[in-house]
Design a protein around this nucleic acid. Structure first.
Lengths: 219, 219
DNA sequence: ATTACTATAGTGCGAGTAA
DNA sequence: TTTACTCGCACTATAGTAA
């Protein structure tokens, strides 16, 4: 709110700066936003300062591209709107962190899974999972995920091993966009695996035993 | 940008003011937005002044609900983000307005259609259609809609008459959210029917013969 | 053409506080 | 408890203009 430049960033994205450098003059940006050329110029400088955009400056104009963190900001914004308008329910699932044996990391680092995550989720997952021991009181909620449609990730066979179908649910953990992944053919478990674009433990300063709340959105 | 209170409006929606009155104190709103209680109070007053929210004031707080135009603002915002992040293509289809014989109005005012529009589109259509005679140069574009998946509206039989399946495509006309509807079993036509939540002719000051551009998004 | 500096006018924020 | 006023300060916008 205080220094909120989300609107400007969105306009830059609309003008083509989301996935590549776009020629955008401060005058044209100002016109789109209903502000002066000077104000638009300052907006760009501030976005660059906050590393939300990258710039290439020439003498006959500048080229602007939204940075990785800028993209994440816009995606988070999009997700919030989506949760508002799409008829989804949000399940608040609580649990305690624990360290797994690294099977999660092994699974999601399989190239065939990774390709699909990158395509079907809105982020490219960090290669590791956050293991959450679901609170007994929330087990009924967690189990409804078994019966809900999620984003389908197809299984495959690699080197004689079978990697089964998996489904993902978009979720939020402490304000961060993430995804809960569960096998389609579930065995009973109280372990919820969470993936995100970053290493959640360092990002959120979490350690074993910490209680977390994951807000899972189901269709 | 100048007097942009979209962020505040979105926060109010998140806090439950989208579809009903919600008890929201200025202090709590301020906390959510990272501003003071006083600033939040002013934000609310400005939103109310612009008729983007309705208020009920008591002595132990206020109840806030986002107005119809406020909802439309947020939906437009959502649509913009959606077009940015969902892998859609946008077809710019041009054509000239003309007056139909009112069959469009007759069709979309059928209750069975209306119910589905309200549920599956993001707006409740005004009971009338805008008839656009598609420019010959854009006919190939228009025809691709025939082969694209849209939002499916199921047909039905009423009083011995058959109303066929129809599909809708989210679209924008002069910055306004709208939808293009075409029968699933299409006969060849150069007439594109556009519906929206308002009477587009008055809303956009259009008259017969005017050229319009409709930006249709397909999956 | 551009971007972006300076100076000034205007708007917004928050502390204190009334109702 | 609330909401929302005034007022001082800071931030932001625009016009003019340099580079």
């Amino acid at each position: 709110m205080k220094g909120d430049h989300t609107g400007t960033l969105k306009q830059l994205a609309i003008m083509g700066a989301l996935n590549s450098f776009a020629d955008i003059t401060s005058a044209r940006l100002g016109e789109s936003l209903g502000i002066s050329q000077q104000a638009a110029s300052k907006e760009i400088l501030k976005l660059a300062e906050q590393k939300l955009v990258d710039r290439q400056i020439g003498q006959r104009g500048q080229r602007i591209m939204i940075s990785r963190s800028g993209q994440e900001l816009l995606k988070r914004e999009y997700l919030e709107y989506k949760l508002l308008f799409e008829p989804t329910r949000n399940l608040q699932i609580h649990g305690a962190l624990f360290s797994g044996l690294g099977e999660g990391r092994y699974y999601i680092s399989q190239p065939r899974y990774k390709q699909q995550f990158a395509k079907k989720l809105m982020f490219t997952p960090y290669e590791g999972t956050l293991n959450v021991r679901v609170a007994p009181a929330d087990m009924p909620l967690f189990e409804t995920l078994t019966f809900s449609e999620g984003i389908r990730i197809d299984g495959f066979v690699s080197k004689g091993r079978t990697f089964g179908d998996v489904k993902c649910f978009l979720a939020m953990i402490q304000g961060l966009e993430c995804s809960v992944i569960i096998p389609v053919r579930t065995h009973y478990t109280d372990v919820m695996e969470v993936i995100a674009s970053r290493h959640l433990r360092t990002q959120l300063s979490l350690k074993d035993g910490d209680m977390v709340e994951v807000s899972v959105s189901i269709a």
